[in-house]
Design a protein around this nucleic acid. Structure first.
Lengths: 219, 219
DNA sequence: ATAAACCAAATTGGATCCAATATTCAATAT
DNA sequence: ATATTGAATATTGGATCCAATTTGGTTTAT
């Protein structure tokens, strides 16, 4: 018996497959804000019935990624400038705590991985992948933390503003500055300076918020 | 046309009725942690089919109030001492921000209402209602805030530890101290001292955490 | 007697069908 | 011509039915 074992109960249900796919499509911008999600259409796309689709949509609504009206259906949720600002403030409050908690728990390997991601981000010239590389770097650092609820909240908050983050990276000197700031955060982590890492993370998020709001309509 | 208008589309769907009822039963302690939620049984209780029940349960799972396993069903979620501590730390981070934001927005009427709730809490001698009165007081103050995402998170965090909060209130001098601290928070709000209100709120939550953890098994 | 194999009941996940509501567009009245 | 009514269509919410999986007890082989 030389089979690689695999938890069969971990196989995904139809509804979770649909949920993951819709979530990615929403935060990735393939579905744009306000766009209606037709249960029938989605069910056909995934070769299932509408039941798993409905469950997926109700979960997305609970996460704030879609808004539904009774008998009218669901549309991709959008954010007003005020709401965007609030989400960034929330991130600026929670993510520094995560980093502060994570720094003493970071292994050598994790720091190496983070350095690679940091480099990959700075080196990329394809705007299509900047958003993913950015998130990848941050979440690598965060993954050392054992604050699961803080992480839940940070992930959801980032989900809700992924599109804005991508927009912010492509504008003016967004990439250049983000790369620089990432490097600063990474260095603080490598030196084990949790306070400094937390402070730089807060500044990084507040800076992104500021440059984003400056370019938003009549904020 | 002198009809009082009413938004008919705001009538509750079956799934949201079930969701609300289950949520209240869970945080109110009527369903205890680990207790399985049988779709069939719940559907019979509400005279519906299992479809709305399943949607309600999937939403509860997204909120962290139940845990489900494929083909095994859902059980009421519980918290380890470490998880409980983390939730209180989260509350201690978020709720002071809410108060700080709310204080300048509090109307004379709201403060009057809050004073009444504060008095009602301190006056109550029925342990069964202490949890509700406590939450009622805090949320009255919070309701002046316009930070909807912060509020979402605070509400959910409180949901998850309602049972522990109730336990904390009935033990030793929990009620007495809470009443005193509530009054301090209220006073700071009335004086328009947002900083002080935030600080007292943080202390209130951290104090509750400490006295709770001291009584928890092998924390 | 004990442990593996297995069958029946219970339970959940998903599909199909029906009901309730919304939307669109043609018909009609003013 | 425009606004209103009303029917046809589209879409969602919920009910019922079937399939997949788990669970608990029973049988059977050693």
């Amino acid at each position: 018996m030389k089979l690689k074992s695999m938890d069969i109960s971990a196989t995904a249900s139809a509804s979770s497959i649909v949920f993951d796919a819709l979530r990615k499509a929403i935060i990735g911008g393939q579905l744009e804000e306000g766009e209606p999600l037709r249960q029938d259409e989605i069910a056909r796309l995934f070769n299932t019935s509408r039941i798993p689709v409905r469950e997926a949509i109700s979960r997305l609504e609970e996460q704030g990624l879609v808004k539904t009206q009774r008998y009218k259906g669901a549309v991709v949720a959008g954010l007003s400038p005020q709401e965007t600002e609030e989400i960034f403030d929330l991130r600026a409050l929670v993510e520094p705590e995560i980093i502060r908690n994570a720094v003493p728990l970071m292994s050598k390997e994790l720091l190496t991985k983070a350095r690679d991601k940091c480099a990959a981000f700075s080196a990329s010239s394809d705007p299509m992948e900047w958003g993913d590389l950015n998130r990848d770097f941050h979440e690598t650092l965060y993954s050392a933390s054992d604050l699961k609820f803080f992480l839940e909240i940070a992930h959801n908050a980032i989900d809700r503003v992924e599109r804005q983050i991508r927009a912010q990276l492509v504008m003016s000197n967004g990439m250049e500055r983000a790369g620089r700031e990432h490097f600063g955060i990474l260095e603080a982590c490598e030196e084990g300076d949790a306070e400094q890492a937390a402070k730089l993370t807060r500044d990084h998020i507040q800076g992104a918020k500021k440059s984003l709001l400056a370019h938003l309509p009549l904020s």
